[in-house]
Design a protein around this nucleic acid. Structure first.
Length: 576
RNA sequence: CGGUGAGUAGCGCAGCCUGGUAGCGCACCUGCCUUGGGAGCAGGGGGUCGCUGGUUCGAUUCCAGUCUCACCGACCA
């Protein structure tokens, strides 16, 4: 490719509305341009990287026996009404009507469409297992699109859907996809973790997220430093503390704690440590149900765990009015003793072993000391409802400690069970001629987001440092002075030879000063740069600079082509 | 949807307080010069000052409304 005939609109200055590095660099490198909020043009260079990654995904999907197809982005409302998600999905689903006033939506995901196809075509257990995938544009009307391709409204996604005869077979399909995902992100040279995750609005029984580690990541994840346990913090299990204190129960006593509203205030005032106190929180569901949560004073609640335990659709902190109605006290002095309404009191498991507690008395400026469960109050259950912290013991092994990371979710695999197949009545006949419900799994990879995440993880002050497998070009040839006929001839020769070998070369033949070319080549992340200049040429030498290490090789004209080809082959060697 | 801030040339910004029809840097075009890390000189093109209305002889500037964008939050594969 001739740079002078190609289209790479780089900029020196960073657009003011780009917040994260990947967004800034993709704009500056001329990979993307914004059309509207969360909606982007993929410029030629950006598209090349996207296509590179798509092909890696495609290869691994095919190897894992998934079959490529393509579904429409416009979907009829009927299917969504049938699955129940037309009502459930909310404003994120972009809806509209056609000329006949029939309702449609832009597909945010394709469970309905694929399940509809499968229920029409799949009749027998002999036809399964099946796994269909597509690489296609999704639209989700996000409340707040941000960070460029990281959280767009329109974005490219690989989604796959597996269909199996039973749960055990579905587990195998899941495992195949999980392993394929591991290979995909390994091939891109990304530093990532597969973590246990909540299933969210997609539903189903279990799931893993694939998280690229980056400080700008929107998710918090923990991983064990000794075993393989890793989880999204939303899901991460809190370790079981050794329960049972030997202290004998002291008499319950009400004490005055004037204007002491926070755990820290109360603990300091009563001269106890925060881990002897109880934090009391009241939560409300969307239809007005209330529940009280008890945690050790220095612990944080995990709202998702509480929500899942209670089986609520939505969870939020109760309003002042709701709290006053059920406890008789304003926030700051809440506790489980003497409630005005009968609401569930959920205690974190850690609370089970605590004795002689400090907790609110449901009266302004009053707390109890030496409160004990069983004697002074009861709870509806002991449940893991706290948020894990860095340094917590691993819930799975004896020796490990949890480490905390920020991550970008680039892939997510779900075991769906029969959620959609049941709703849409996707069935088959088993060997006994009996009708059975199909078991499903679904598997997504954010294509653009992965490319952005790769940049987030691979850049320096000069720009992008693309891992070769997803770099838009493998290498470039920079002719230092295009007016020097010798330089141009040598550069062209190298360019033609490399192209003949199947290497993707960007030939920087622009009539620009060398500094401009070097800066642009660095910015767009070309992994290998071959520089042909008159000085080196006088000695029969050209220079090869490796973007990732900064290493510079001085090579003779004879060897440069084979050496570069070798360097590239080596980079791809572990790939297959 | 709540909070904050911003809309002036393709990009980054100034001007607005104190009204008189718009400026700087980068980019772009022409010429000269230059060629190993975003050179230099000279000349040039490009703007309904987000939109609508009001005040005024006159509005980018003051007032009201409205739209859009970004950030924080809530939300979210």
């Amino acid at each position: 490719m001739l740079y002078s005939r190609y289209f790479i609109p780089t900029t020196k200055e960073t657009p003011s509305d780009a917040e994260v590095v990947s967004h800034q660099l993709m704009l500056r490198a001329g990979m993307i341009r914004k059309l509207a909020s969360g909606i982007y043009n993929y410029l030629p260079l950006g598209l090349r990287s996207i296509r590179k990654f798509e092909n890696i995904v495609r290869e691994e999907m095919n190897k894992a026996d998934a079959i490529e197809m393509l579904m429409p982005s416009v979907q009829p409302a009927e299917l969504w009404q049938e699955s129940g998600r037309w009502a459930f999905y909310g404003k994120e689903l972009l809806r509209f009507k056609d000329r006949k006033e029939a309702e449609f939506c832009m597909g945010p995901t394709h469970e309905e469409v694929i399940t509809d196809m499968v229920r029409r075509e799949i009749k027998s257990y002999r036809q399964m297992p099946l796994n269909f995938y597509q690489i296609q544009t999704k639209f989700r009307d996000e409340i707040r699109p941000r960070f460029g391709l990281m959280r767009g409204r329109e974005f490219i996604m690989k989604d796959a859907y597996s269909f199996d005869v039973d749960s055990a077979a579905a587990d195998l399909s899941y495992e195949k996809m999980y392993n394929a995902y591991m290979r995909i992100f390994e091939r891109c040279g990304l530093n990532f973790r597969a973590v246990e995750a909540d299933t969210g609005s997609i539903g189903g029984s279990s799931s893993h997220e694939f998280m690229v580690l980056a400080d700008s990541g929107e998710d918090a994840i923990v991983s064990c430093d000794a075993c393989r346990y890793a989880a999204n913090i939303e899901k991460a299990e809190s370790p079981l503390y050794s329960v049972g204190s030997n202290a004998s129960a002291e008499p319950l006593q009400k004490v005055s704690t004037p204007a002491m509203k926070t755990i820290a205030d109360v603990a300091a005032f009563l001269n106890v440590t925060a881990d002897n106190t109880i934090k009391t929180l009241v939560y409300a569901s969307d239809n007005g149900d209330l529940a009280m949560a008890l945690l050790r004073g220095d612990h944080e609640l995990n709202e998702l765990k509480l929500k899942n335990y209670l089986g609520w659709d939505e969870i939020q902190m109760a309003s002042e009015e709701q709290i006053l109605a059920c406890t008789g006290s304003p926030v700051g002095f809440l506790g489980p003793i003497g409630l005005k309404q009968d609401i569930p009191v959920i205690a974190d498991r850690v609370v089970q072993g605590m004795t002689n507690l400090v907790l609110g008395a449901n009266e302004v400026d009053q707390h109890f000391i030496n409160a004990n469960r069983g004697r002074d109050f009861e709870v509806s259950g002991f449940v893991d409802i706290r948020t894990v912290e860095a340094g917590d013991a691993c819930p799975r092994c004896d020796t490990g400690k949890l480490e905390m990371w920020r991550g970008i979710e680039v892939g997510h695999v779900f075991k769906l069970g029969t959620k959609y197949s049941k709703a849409l009545n996707a069935t088959y006949l088993d060997a006994n001629g009996r009708e059975q419900i199909i078991f499903m799994g679904c598997y997504g990879i954010g294509i653009g987001r992965t490319v952005a995440a790769a940049i987030e993880q691979n850049h320096d002050e000069n720009g992008i440092i693309f891992p070769i497998p997803i770099a838009p070009f493998h290498c470039s040839v920079v002719a230092v002075n295009t007016k020097d006929a010798g330089v141009m001839a040598a550069a062209e020769e190298i360019y033609f030879c490399l192209e003949k070998l199947g290497v993707e070369v960007l030939f920087d033949d622009r009539d620009e000063r060398p500094g401009v070319k070097f800066k642009d080549n660095d910015l767009i992340g070309i992994p290998l740069r071959i520089v042909v200049g008159s000085k080196g040429l006088a000695e029969g030498k050209v220079e090869v600079k490796i973007r990732s290490t900064g290493e510079v090789l001085s090579l003779s004209l004879d060897e440069v082509v084979t050496t570069v080809k070798q360097l590239i082959d080596t980079a791809f060697a572990h790939q297959e």
